[in-house]
Design a binder for these strands. Structure first.
Length: 277
DNA sequence: GTGGAGACATGACTCCGTAG
DNA sequence: CTACGGAGTCATGTCTCCAC
């Protein structure tokens, strides 16, 4: 006959297994093992009841075991229902895509399956700090907050890591990193000065230019010819052009693919009246 | 019109170096 | 040690071109 502490130990085993099953995907092996353990404990309780040694504490332990098994059964059943429903939806979707005519399928394909990042706020921040597009941790968190404030779909929420990668990729792909090496010899302070000079040269507001160099402690902004006295006028022009390309890249984002704006242009052109056949 | 090949865009991962 | 940036790279989606 098991003592009360031994029964308690068995219950702990049952609870541990139930917890494992709830945390992981509960497979049939969990349920079988759990059921066997529970059966052993219940058989012991029945036996103690028969011989008149079943205490109220032991009865409570048995009730807790029953509750855990019910809980697990319910979770299992719920998961099976969800899996079935997902499987059915996936099958329908695959069959729909496979059987659809190509034209309709192409149109559908334009809705990218992998949700594009909501880069509006990151893009905006980048353009406001083009001289030094390296947000601090707090600034990244603010961008995340701003981005996710306007996102109702939890599946498309921007993660910290995504924002970090976006800035790394964008600096590289916009040509910013190349510009840094080409015109500032890898010196970020120098590039900030160049950006400030370009900003002053162009004049206007952030809205008019579409970009800003970002905040700087400098009080006097040197001219480009002072900053880069050895650079020829044609090379300075090339630099201005490269800078404009960076601005263009960050502003537009290549997600607005050629095909998309061509479609818009085509749609905007008034169609000639169709000739009767 | 359709299908395939190749190019391109983009998000994400890994590895390594660096700064604090 | 940790966080971060840069570079290289991969996976996937999209687009364009071209042969049929």
């Amino acid at each position: 006959m098991l003592s009360e502490s031994e029964l308690g130990e068995r219950l702990l085993q049952v609870e541990y297994m139930a917890l494992q099953a709830l945390v992981n995907s509960p497979g049939p092996e969990y349920v079988a093992a759990l059921q066997s353990l529970a059966d052993a404990v219940l058989a012991e309780a029945m036996m103690q009841k028969r011989v008149g040694t079943l205490s109220s504490a032991t009865r409570r332990l048995c009730m807790r075991i029953g509750a855990r098994i019910n809980q697990l059964t319910s979770v299992l059943s719920q998961q099976h229902t969800e899996v079935d429903s997902l499987r059915s939806a996936a099958t329908k979707e695959v069959s729909r895509i496979v059987t659809k005519p190509r034209r309709a399928r192409r149109a559908k394909e334009r809705e990218r399956v992998d949700q594009p990042l909501n880069a509006v706020h990151m893009r905006d921040w980048f353009l406001r700090h083009l001289g030094h597009p390296f947000p601090t941790r707090n600034e990244k968190l603010e961008i995340l907050l701003e981005t996710n404030r306007s996102t109702s779909n939890p599946g498309s929420r921007l993660e910290y890591n995504q924002a970090m990668l976006w800035f790394i990729n964008s600096r590289r792909r916009s040509g910013w990193t190349l510009f840094l090496r080409k015109y500032a010899n890898g010196d970020k302070t120098m590039l900030m000065d160049i950006a400030k000079s370009l900003e002053t040269e162009l004049g206007g507001t952030h809205t008019q230019r579409g970009w800003s160099a970002g905040p700087t402690p400098r009080t006097r902004i040197p001219k480009l010819t002072e900053l880069l006295p050895e650079m020829s006028e044609s090379r300075l022009d090339q630099m201005r052009s490269d800078w404009a390309a960076i601005v263009e890249w960050v502003t537009v984002g290549v997600k607005d693919r050629v095909g998309d704006w061509v479609d818009k242009v085509i749609e905007s052109v008034p169609r000639p009246k169709e000739e009767p056949e």
